[in-house]
Write a protein that binds this DNA or RNA. Structure first.
Lengths: 345, 345
DNA sequence: CTCGTTTCCTATAACGATTTAGGAGTAGAA
DNA sequence: TTCTACTCCTAAATCGTTATAGGAAACGAG
């Protein structure tokens, strides 16, 4: 009775006035049964309109919010969307942007955002399987898709709602948001060609990644058209230390490389460091095109040709795509391709 | 019966073999009552040791994991730790690092990480209050503390578990992880003084932030000792556009400023851009000390004097601090101060 | 043999929600 | 009047868990 206790169910405690309202509270206040209240809020067709109106009014006044545990226990729906990210690659800003726009989009919905990470070297499927099998979320979002992504295959087979940041070879059949890396690769090459560069090196992310393949494909195509040469330098680890980049660049420079394409702020910075310590000047002996999520690189070297990727847009799309996959499993999946503009000026 | 249905409770469905095991499953298999199984797993003192061993064995074999909804409904514990972040300031890398180390630390525990954001201009208390009042989490973690932080006061009064990234004036009474910005300010000034700089400008974050005040205090103290001068340039918005910084710098340079201190990668980059467009060279006419979470700045301008802050460490501490606040409300709060080293070489 | 004690387990009731089956009224038809 | 049909609501069961109160069996003491 005093303030010692605190055993048993804590959350609503019920009894004292002013506690968190539940269906039971509304039932008491309206004189209806709990079941009726529940059905009224669900807008059941066999209730009188004025009954439903009354219930809704009281619910609003009390600020009733359905208890998540009760709902989840009964229906199996968690109202959670899980984000399973890799901490690798471009920790810089993409990650934070993506998370914040996901959270921002979900904020006026009943969904919560749960963040977990899968770690390098670990089975890609493991965290996803865990989420699905223990019913931890209603949908999953993940990034760093592979062309033949096992997660996508597994989730499609099970018809579990999901959305990916990046496409796969089943892109027509699932929800995704992606940046048009093919276009990026092509634009990058064309910009360099227009600047008079003829031998272009692409510092590519690991080539098993879908987007890396797109960049390479786009660059290769455009190079053929523009009549310039392209060399692919796959980036073995994702942490592109500048020493590694420097070594690679030292190898290819004697071959006459005069343009470089980078896929991220990170690798662009490492590359600039490498180039400068090899005595090259941007805009003079060599040019650099890079993709970045935050207008950053041009702050540093205004000579860098930067192409923007709006990760915030991807986050907003992914959040809506996940909700749609949950609520309308049959509907065509939401998809969004962000295409960069070749707005040379 | 066929695959049409899917009404009613989804998660365990129970019936077909191989479904998610619950206490009931274990009870059936051992011939014990559900309550006994529950108590056995909780290691109740009035059960025979071999009974408990049996239950645990069967539970392990089945891979039993307590159902979160059931647990939450009954006990009120959510097994969720909520992170309420500001998307402002140093979106760069701090945020992503913090989230990933929180998630990484929580990963082998029963706790899940829920991410929500509070937005600029919004009442700081609002999201926190929402989390607490609707029982969305067992603990809250947030950043960007103010010296007199209303969230901290509110949570302490209610004895709700929390941990902060950054201290407050009640720092001795709650859990926190922080970087020693006082030491950073002092070290920064000493490094500049040792380099022969006499008039130092501090590009400070908004001065209502606790850490901004610490940096200023540390710089001021050390300046007095070293016999150099310090000027504070408070950064009005957090997005320190380089144009703004440039304007400020243009004002103070004629006064003989020859050293600059920046609190983040962001502002350091803006500052460098500003300085260079004003015709100054780092390491020549002027020196710059900056704090950063990722070894980044020295990649770009090796002349920048960079001091590292390990946000990953803060994340790990905050996760453990939150769990401790939940599990041992009486125990002294976990606190961690990361002190930068003045390792000039 | 009977009565307390101790040991070890179980039945029941909740937590808050939804779903199913059914029940009390009222109205209309024969 | 009596039966049927419809409208609108409710009782009960259930999801998985834990706390409380109590009960069966075994044992020792008188």
């Amino acid at each position: 009775m005093s303030d010692t206790a605190a055993e048993g169910p804590l959350p609503s405690a019920g009894g004292h006035r002013g506690e968190t309202p539940t269906l039971k509270t509304i039932a008491r206040m309206t004189g209806l049964a709990v079941a009726t209240v529940s059905r009224a809020l669900a807008d059941a067709p066999d209730l009188r309109a004025d009954t439903k109106a009354l219930v809704r009014k009281v619910a609003d006044e009390l600020g009733y919010v359905p208890n998540r545990a009760g709902l989840r226990l009964r229906t199996g729906r968690t109202q959670v969307i899980a984000l399973a990210m890799s901490p690798e690659h471009d920790m810089m800003n993409n990650t934070a942007r993506l998370i914040s726009s996901l959270a921002g989009t979900l904020r006026e919905t009943p969904y919560h955002l749960n963040v977990s990470y899968f770690f390098p070297g670990e089975d890609l499927l493991k965290p996803i399987r865990h989420i699905v099998e223990t019913g931890l979320a209603d949908a999953v979002i993940f990034n760093q898709t592979l062309p033949d992504d096992p997660r996508v295959a597994w989730l499609m087979e099970r018809r579990f709602p999901f959305a990916t940041h990046g496409r796969t070879r089943w892109a027509d059949r699932h929800a995704w948001a992606d940046f048009d890396n093919l276009a990026f690769g092509a634009i990058a090459v064309r910009r360099l060609a227009r600047a008079g560069r003829r031998r272009i090196a692409v510092i590519a992310p690991p080539l098993d990644q879908n987007y890396a393949q797109d960049i390479v494909a786009g660059a290769t195509l455009a190079a053929a058209e523009a009549g310039v040469e392209v060399r692919i330098l796959p980036q073995l680890t994702s942490d592109a230390a500048s020493a590694v980049v420097q070594e690679r660049m030292a190898q290819v420079l004697p071959e006459g490389v005069d343009g470089v394409i980078c896929a991220s702020t990170n690798s662009a910075m490492a590359t600039v460091a490498a180039l400068e310590s090899l005595g090259l000047r941007l805009g003079r002996e060599i040019d650099l095109v890079a993709k970045e999520a935050i207008p950053f690189l041009s702050l540093f070297r205004r000579e860098i040709i930067a192409i923007r990727e709006d990760v915030g847009r991807a986050g907003a799309v992914l959040a809506r795509a996940a909700m749609r996959a949950i609520r309308e499993p049959g509907a065509p999946p939401l998809q969004d391709l962000e295409t960069p503009q070749d707005d040379d000026q």
